[in-house]
């Protein structure tokens, strides 16, 4: 029974496929469309990257601007600057 269904399915699919009109469009036209889409995709990608960079810059600048003057953000060496060197007898080079 399954064998018979397989054969009938094959015949049906062949008959259906034969009834489908499928002439390929002009290749040059299709290729021009692919190139246009590819250019557009790259342009959109470049704009998105530029926007992300600009946003990151702006956020960084805003964060820097929020801090008080003379307030070290990353390294705080004030304690070491004002600290006296221990008298170990070792002379720094």
């Amino acid at each position: 029974m399954t064998r018979s269904t397989e054969e009938r399915l094959r015949e049906t699919l062949d008959a259906l496929a034969a009834g489908i009109e499928a002439a390929p469009p002009a290749y040059k036209k299709a290729r021009a469309e692919w190139r246009r889409r590819e250019r557009r995709r790259r342009l959109v990608l470049a704009v998105l990257i530029a926007i992300v960079f600009a946003l990151a810059d702006l956020i960084g600048l805003w964060a820097l601007n929020q801090t008080r003057d003379h307030d070290p953000i990353i390294f705080d060496d004030r304690s070491r600057i004002h600290q006296t060197d221990p008298a170990t007898g070792v002379i720094p080079p």
Binding site: A17, A22, R31
Partner: peptide, 22 residues
């Protein structure tokens, strides 16, 4: 590659269209 793609387009387009319909 352009020639290969053009050949593929001419030879495979109909088959792929029928596959999508089926």
């Amino acid at each position: 590659p352009d020639e290969a793609l053009a050949t593929l387009f001419q030879t495979q387009y109909a088959g792929m269209l029928r596959l999508a319909v089926l």
